[in-house]
Design a protein around this nucleic acid. Sequence first.
DNA 1: TTTAAAAACTAACAAACGTTAGTTAGTATT
DNA 2: AATACTAACTAACGTTTGTTAGTTTTTAAA
Lengths: 194, 194
Amino acid sequence: MPTLKVKLSKRELIISEASKLFREKGFGGSSMRDLAEKVGIEAASMYHHIRSKDEILEEICFEMAHRYEAQLSETEVQDISYPEKIEALIAFHVQLIIDNANAVSVVNNDWKYLSKERMIAFKSIRNDYEKRFAAIISKGIEAGAFKKVNISIALFTILSSLRWVELWYKPTRGVTKEDLAKDISAILMNGVKA
Amino acid sequence: MPTLKVKLSKRELIISEASKLFREKGFGGSSMRDLAEKVGIEAASMYHHIRSKDEILEEICFEMAHRYEAQLSETEVQDISYPEKIEALIAFHVQLIIDNANAVSVVNNDWKYLSKERMIAFKSIRNDYEKRFAAIISKGIEAGAFKKVNISIALFTILSSLRWVELWYKPTRGVTKEDLAKDISAILMNGVKA
DNA sequence: TTTAAAAACTAACAAACGTTAGTTAGTATT
DNA sequence: AATACTAACTAACGTTTGTTAGTTTTTAAA
C-alpha cells in the first residue's frame, strides 16, 4: 500500500493520520498535539490545512458515507438477482473495510462525536442507506428469492455482521478479500447449519 | 424497569448513569461534571464512591466481561447439541444486550479508553471467550452439525452480527427478546436464501 | 441529645485541551 | 534580486479537564 501512495497533500496526510489515531485512541482520546506529532509538524501549523478538529472527523465520516452511497446506487440498477445484489454489496463492504480500515473504524465508532447538526445530517444519510438496502431485501422476498424473514432484522444482521472484518483482516492470514466476502456471504445466505 | 429498581447504592447509581452518559457521548466526550449533574451531586462528591473516572470504565467493562464468561461456562457443560449451544448463546447475548444496553454499548465502543494494563487484561478475557466460542463451532463441524466453514469467520460473523441489537431494540416495536433471538438465530443457522 | 461517621459542599490546582496571533523560514515567480 | 505567497514556527489565550484539600451538612448510633 505505501508504495503506491502518490504525493498526498498535507491536508490528506493530516486526515489519513487522524483516521489512524482516532481509530486507535478514539476521537475524544486523541489530541491535536498527538496528531501533529504523527504528521510531523506543530499543532498550530495544522490549522493552515484544516479548520478544526471537528472538521477532520466530519470529512472522514461524510467521505465514507458518500462512498457507501455511491456503490449502493450502482448496485441498485445492476441487472442481477436480488441475492446477487446483496452479495455484491457484502463484497463491496468487505473491500471498503479492508482498504480503508482506519476511516471505516472511525465512522463506526466515533460518529457520536459529530456536532449535533452534522450528526443529524450523517444519521439521515445512514438512514437512507438502510432504507434502500432494506428495499432490496424486501423485493427479494417478494420475488421468492429470500425466506420471509423480518426485513429489519435481516438488514441489520447482515450489515453489522461485517463489523469485525476491520479488526480481523490481515494479509498474513492468507484469506483474500474475495474469499472472505464469499465466506461471509455463504453464511448469511445459507447459514452455518449442515 | 425503573419501577423494579431496589435501592441502588450511590456507587451503583454513578456507574449506571456513567453507562448511560458514556454510551451517548463516548468516554472521552463525557466529563465528570456532566456525570455528576446526572447523578445529582457535585463532581468532587463522587470521589467518595469511586476512585477515578477510569475506575468507572473498568468496572463497566469487566463486570460485563464476567457475565459473558459466566454464561459461556454454563452453556459449555449443558447436555445439548452444538447448534443448540450456539443458539442458546445467541439468545443470551440478545438478552444481555437488551437488559444492559448502556453497559454493553460502552464495552463495545469504549474499551479502547482502558489503561494499557487493564486493556491487556480485558483483551485477554475477550480472547479466551472467543477461543471457547470457536471451540463449540469447531466441535459442531466435527460432529457434522455445521458446514465446514472457516471457524474464525463463522465465529466473528455470529458475534458481531448481534451488535446492532443495542441500537435497534425498543419494546414498542412489538418484537420480544425471544422472538428477536430466534429470528437472528434462524438467519445465522439457515441463511436468508429461500 | 450528644457523638461519630458518612456524604455532601466550595474552592482551587495543575495539566491538557483546541485554537488564535504574530513571526519566521522556505519556495516559486517576476 | 526583489516580491509575494505558502507553510511552518513559537508563544500564549481562555477553557475545560480530572482530581485534591478542607469544610460543612446530613444521617445514624449511643
